[in-house]
Simulated assay, not measured.
Amino acid sequence: MIKVLVVDDEPQILRALRINLAAHGYEVHTAEDGAAALRQAAAVVPDLIVLDLGLPDMDGGEVIAGLRGWTKTPILVLSGRAASTEKITALDAGADDYVTKPFDIGELLARVRAVTRRGGDEAESPLVTLGETAVDLAARTVRRAGEEVRLTPTEWQLVEILLRNPGKLVSQRELLHRVWGPSYDRETNYLRQYMAQLRRKLEADPARPAHLLTEPGMGYRFRP
């Protein structure tokens, strides 16, 4: 059974998430502040942490930093802070995804499924499919409807980051830093250009991508 630690200081949200997650087969643990979250994470060793940023004793960003000092457990931020800067800061600090309050429980459960899948063997497989396109990350080959597709070195770097993190929202800053270097913070036009090229090569309908998705102002996500 997948263990989820929910951290929020609002009793109604804790109760709603505990009921809904348990109904879908998750083992649910809860904490109402940052200190309790860090203690629970060490004691329970959850498979996923759902974390509010506005906690009474410390900022959620501090909790993320404390967790990332010793664990790679996926962190899904659930917060009322809707500004893009807040989302990017949380993602860069080590969060794996970000959902804004008020939230739709169906969408939240889908995000939970996507993030927890990354912890299993499926996420480590070198062969990834996008409809009729098969990407072999180990052999660095792409075939679409049986025909070979060639990617540039930069396209390979981008697609490998996204495909090795299925369901995860990868921030623009992280992609820019990992592909072009730490001095590239604002060149988001590079990302737009290369993502458009990747969609033309990998997606069945580049104008309406089903797998390489844009989260406006935040980053990109690979949806299996």
Rank of each mutant, 00 (worst) to 15 (best):
V128G: 02
L213R: 14
R81I: 09
T188Y: 12
G119K: 08
P209H: 13
R164I: 06
R111A: 11
E148T: 14
L38G: 04
D52W: 05
T30W: 02
R68F: 07
R18Q: 13
T89K: 15
V63K: 09
Q12A: 15
L55R: 10
A204C: 03
P206A: 07
V4K: 02
G34F: 05
T71Q: 13
D52E: 09
A35E: 15
L14F: 02
E62V: 06
I13T: 15
R144F: 00
E62H: 08
D121P: 05
L38E: 01
V44G: 03
M58N: 01
L191C: 01
I105W: 01
T71E: 10
A207M: 11
H29E: 12
G34A: 11
D136L: 06
A95S: 09
R186I: 07
K168P: 00
K87A: 13
R113P: 00
L191Y: 06
L21F: 14
K101D: 00
G54S: 10
L130Q: 02
D9T: 10
G217H: 06
A43I: 01
L51A: 04
R39P: 00
A42F: 04
I2P: 14
E10P: 00
A196F: 04
K72A: 15
A145T: 08
I88D: 10
L5E: 11
Q193D: 08
L67N: 09
P74H: 13
S79E: 04
L202W: 07
S171D: 08
L55W: 03
D121A: 12
R81W: 15
D57A: 06
K87C: 14
E27V: 05
R39E: 13
Y194T: 02
G131N: 01
R150V: 13
I161E: 07
G120M: 01
P206C: 09
P224V: 05
P46F: 10
H211M: 07
L14C: 04
T214A: 15
R223T: 03
L48T: 02
I75Y: 12
V179Y: 09
P216A: 13
R143P: 00
I49Q: 12
T133L: 08
Y98A: 00
V4D: 00
N20R: 15
A196I: 01
L202E: 14
V6K: 03
L202G: 09
V115L: 15
V159F: 10
P209Q: 13
T116W: 06
A35Y: 03
